[in-house]
């Protein structure tokens, strides 16, 4: 019995040594990884099979494949992309909605995410597909309306989309306000804020609510800059030429972090702050 215990003890010691070795390997790898920057050559983009292949190839497991791409999209988006844009996003979203067209959230997600990555037309196409496949959703037309309004400046189409959203039986009361707005007359920022307020309060999805809050924060920052620009004018007798001058002029110590990360500019004549893409 003694000998058997010894054998077990020795085995345990060896095992402990193997754990130590393993941890050391991990540490070495981490140390090396710090020095390595994510270059284009080492970067792994998610690979999306062509839609035709997906349509015929994933026999019996379409939903599962859609879920797989959905999970890879979540891993992909936000992890940093050396190409500067998440260029696989439209492919991923098209694949997901082709495999599982009734899966509602990817449409909303695409409408929220794609335009800021430069995929405005792709977002609209996705949203329109969503209108057909998930007709009862109030959120898909709602964000489609937002994209039409904000990025396409198509007030007619935006109005139609908000109208459709308001008519959905699932739409919250607040969403109906948007259907009544006269876009041509209302201020752009006020409209956007109104849109995001509804989303922040009424979306069923936590990520959407968070995203909406980020936009609201973004507009609050714009308001803040304009307020500071007016203070700048009182002090120096003119509006600043750039936002940087607010800092050099001693009005703000640091730029508040903008969660939406859209470049802003200031008009030196009026002191109004707007997004660069406008």
């Amino acid at each position: 019995m003694v000998r058997r215990a010894t054998v077990w003890f020795v085995a345990l010691v060896i095992f402990a040594a193997s754990v130590v070795a393993q941890v050391n390997i991990n540490n070495l790898n981490t140390a090396r990884a710090v020095k390595r920057t994510a270059g284009i050559n080492t970067y792994n983009e998610p690979f999306v099979l062509p839609e035709k292949v997906l349509a015929n190839g994933v026999v019996g497991f379409r939903n599962l494949t859609a879920d797989y791409y959905w999970l890879s999209l979540i891993q992909y988006f936000g992890a940093g992309d050396p190409f500067g844009e998440y260029r696989q996003l439209p492919h991923l979203l098209n694949a997901i909605t082709a495999l599982d067209p009734k899966f509602a959230y990817p449409y909303t997600f695409g409408l929220l995410i794609l335009p800021d990555q430069g995929f405005v037309d792709e977002a609209i196409a996705l949203g329109e597909k969503g209108l057909v496949e998930v007709p009862h959703s109030w959120e898909i037309p709602y964000y489609l309306g937002y994209v039409q309004y904000r990025y396409k400046k198509d007030l007619v189409k935006a109005g139609e989309a908000f109208e459709r959203s308001a008519q959905s039986p699932e739409a919250p009361a607040a969403a109906k306000i948007l259907a009544g707005i006269n876009f041509a007359r209302a201020g752009q920022r006020e409209t956007a804020i109104a849109i995001w307020k509804v989303a922040a309060e009424s979306s069923e999805n936590e990520y959407t609510r968070e995203r909406a809050k980020e936009y609201l924060e973004h507009y609050a920052i714009i308001d803040f800059y304009e307020e500071q620009a007016r203070a700048y004018k009182t002090r120096y007798g003119r509006f600043p030429n750039t936002l940087e001058e607010l800092k050099t002029g001693g009005l703000i110590r640091d730029f508040p972090p903008d969660p939406v990360n859209i470049e802003l500019k200031i008009d030196p004549k009026t002191g109004s702050v707007s997004e660069v893409l406008d």
Partner: peptide, 16 residues
Amino acid sequence: ISLEQDVKVIKDLGLA
């Protein structure tokens, strides 16, 4: 990790 799509993912993956 599915942005609140867990019921769908669980049903899909479970049944498959």
